[in-house]
């Protein structure tokens, strides 16, 4: 009887899919469901109680702080996206089309990944002595006579936050773009030249359209990472700037879990909407 059941290919199929389903249910679906549930709970100064209240969302959407912080989050995401795209595309283009030898290509590519052998936090913090009021950057600029006074906006500003973001996440743009570019048949570039396309025209009409899936994957990486980040913003702005991640982490620090959960749900929906919009434009399925 049991053997018969195993021979049934529907049963067998479900069994084979079961481990991954369980992992996803336990570690992805269940936590999200819990966050959604908790976001409807009530809270007083000293307690949290199960309930079904819209209070948390009411408060969130009625507070001007929410809009300001979401706006700041989008701003960080957009500026970081634009910069990582510009740098990432250029680096990937150089690696894929200008470096002829495969060995050098791989060597240079590994070189790009070396910073990732250290932790995020260390890479972030190492900017602080460089950018500080009496840091290397300011001292060097003063000794060259470029400036008389130390630049105040170098550290603990939007500038330093975005600098750290770009530093941390450019590789997430380089890798998928490089990957798609390497799949472009080199004879297409010759064909474009044969058809009278200039270097710029080849870039615009052949390389960029064929690289969009890679650009899109990199965009999703960078946008989701930046929108979900809170530690970079905290360290690099010296706690003077806020994004949605920091809003959540502050609520958690104050043990306001329902409010934190509501903010998290709104952030999750926002990110999903952004990705849905991106996917409307480009079909990335064949890249996966």
């Amino acid at each position: 009887m049991g053997a018969d059941l195993l021979r049934n290919r529907h049963v067998l199929g479900w069994l084979q899919a079961a481990p991954l389903t369980l992992v996803l249910l336990g570690f992805l679906v269940a936590p999200i469901v819990m966050i959604v549930i908790v976001s409807f709970w009530g809270a007083t100064e000293f307690s949290i109680y199960p309930a079904f209240l819209w209070d948390n969302y009411d408060f969130l959407f009625s507070s001007p702080v929410t809009y300001k912080v979401f706006w700041a989050t989008f701003k960080y995401a957009f500026i970081t996206w634009a910069l990582t795209l510009a740098i990432g595309f250029t680096v990937a283009y150089f690696l894929a089309f200008h470096v002829r030898s495969l060995t050098i290509q791989i060597a240079l590519f590994l070189l790009c990944t070396i910073p990732f052998w250290t932790s995020n936090i260390i890479r972030m913090i190492s900017w602080i002595p460089f950018l500080g009021r009496n840091g290397i950057a300011n001292q060097t600029l003063i000794s060259w006579g470029v400036i008389d006074e130390p630049l105040e906006w170098l550290l603990y500003s939007d500038f330093s936050v975005i600098l750290a973001f770009v530093h941390l996440y450019t590789l997430f743009m380089v890798v998928p773009i490089f990957n798609t570019m390497m799949r472009i048949d080199k004879s297409l570039l010759e064909a474009a030249r044969d058809n009278g396309a200039s270097g710029l025209q080849t870039l615009v009409h052949v390389i960029v359209p064929l690289t969009t899936p890679g650009i899109m994957i990199g965009t999703i990486f960078v946008v989701t990472l930046v929108m979900g980040d809170f530690i970079t913003v905290r360290f690099m702005s010296g706690s003077q700037r806020a994004n949605v991640g920091r809003l959540i982490s502050n609520d958690i620090a104050l043990l306001q879990y329902p409010s934190a959960a509501a903010t998290a749900v709104v952030l999750l929906c926002t990110v999903l909407i952004v990705i849905a919009i991106l996917l409307r434009f480009v079909n990335i399925r064949k890249e996966l």
């Binding site: 048949d185 004879s187 297409l188 010759e190 064909a191 474009a192 052949v206 064929l210």
Partner: peptide, 8 residues
């Protein structure tokens, strides 16, 4: 071209 090199 040998593989035709059509723009996909």
């Amino acid at each position: 071209f040998q593989n035709y090199a059509l723009f996909p």
